[in-house]
């Protein structure tokens, strides 16, 4: 990915927001390598020919140290499917030395052995280890249609496994693009989780991003300077986060790897200036507010 241009002239008319401080750092540790190929995946991850490569442990540790020196509060490990990383446990251990750490997983690879290792790492740290398990829909029919046959049952099993070890996971669901009754997905998902024996459902609803496989081709206008007049910039993730992915440092995990989105190749500290909201998908964050973090 080294051929990707640093943010270029196409962004000249886009609005810019000041960076506040680094509160969270995201690592796309497996690039876009995933065991699933979900229908709505915003970065088109999948099992074949990942277009973003995984990050090595040394690169991750170097950026963790840099983020720590910058006062970071939270570390997020994502992909692709982060559980596919061959050095996952070493990465988690390093991250937990710096700050509270969250792993975003589809839950299908989270057997008893993995759960035991994660529980041991969590117990050894004074910081919280959060697991976010993706569940899209309140039934196997809905979820499996988006993620593949049998994945709903595996995700639920992973959630129960984590709960048994005190790692009460956050269940994340992507809201459909089509408008539904407010709260309908939350309520149905909560009922389904309770019915499945999940004792403490923690639920986070994420907006669908018209990007990657969820991009239906409908044109979305990029933000213009006037859009910022009606926005509290603190609601934008790019004012307080950066994402480390194959090829460099990006403004947020959504833009990681996209053409024109790289802010620097080597160092987070070089990216802490104003952020340009150049991409049409920036409109989602503009409309829904800071959403990628746990809370």
């Amino acid at each position: 990915m080294n051929g990707l241009p640093v943010l270029g002239p196409t962004a000249q008319s886009a609005p810019r927001v000041a960076f506040r401080e680094l509160r969270s750092v995201w690592f796309q540790i497996t690039g876009t390598r995933c065991n699933l190929a979900c229908r709505h995946c915003f970065n088109t991850s999948g099992p074949r020919d990942p277009w973003l490569s995984p990050l090595g442990v040394d690169v991750i540790r170097r950026h963790l140290a840099e983020a720590e020196a910058l006062g970071v509060r939270e570390v997020y490990l994502t992909g692709g499917e982060p559980l596919l990383h061959p050095d996952l446990f070493a990465i988690v251990e390093s991250a937990l030395r710096v700050a509270a750490t969250t792993i975003l997983t589809n839950g299908t690879l989270l057997g008893d052995g993995v759960a035991d290792r994660l529980a041991a790492l969590a117990a050894a740290s004074s910081y919280s280890l959060e697991l976010r398990v993706s569940v899209d829909g309140a039934s196997a029919q809905e979820h499996d249609a988006a993620r593949g046959d049998g994945t709903f049952a595996k995700a639920l099993a992973a959630i129960r496994r984590l709960e048994r070890r005190g790692l009460y996971p956050i269940v994340t669901a992507t809201a459909p693009l089509e408008p539904t009754a407010p709260g309908a997905l939350y309520d149905r998902l909560r009922e389904a989780l309770l019915a499945a024996g999940v004792s403490r459902p923690r639920i986070k609803i994420l907006p669908m991003l018209a990007l990657g496989r969820a991009d239906a081709g409908a044109p979305t206008a990029p933000l213009g300077p006037a859009d910022l007049d009606v926005l509290d910039p603190s609601r934008l993730q790019c004012t307080e986060t950066r994402a480390v992915a194959d090829g460099g440092i990006y403004a947020c995990p959504i833009l990681a790897g996209l053409p024109g989105a790289r802010l620097a190749r080597e160092r987070i500290v070089e990216t802490l200036g104003p952020t340009t909201l150049f991409h049409p998908v920036c409109r989602t964050c503009h409309e829904t507010g800071l959403t990628c973090g746990n809370a």
């Binding site: 720590e68 020196a69 006062g71 970071v72 509060r73 710096v98 700050a99 509270a100 004074s126 919280s128």
Partner: peptide, 9 residues
């Protein structure tokens, strides 16, 4: 919170 506030911060 105690478990999400790094010492460095």
């Amino acid at each position: 919170w105690e478990t999400t506030t790094p010492t460095g911060l």
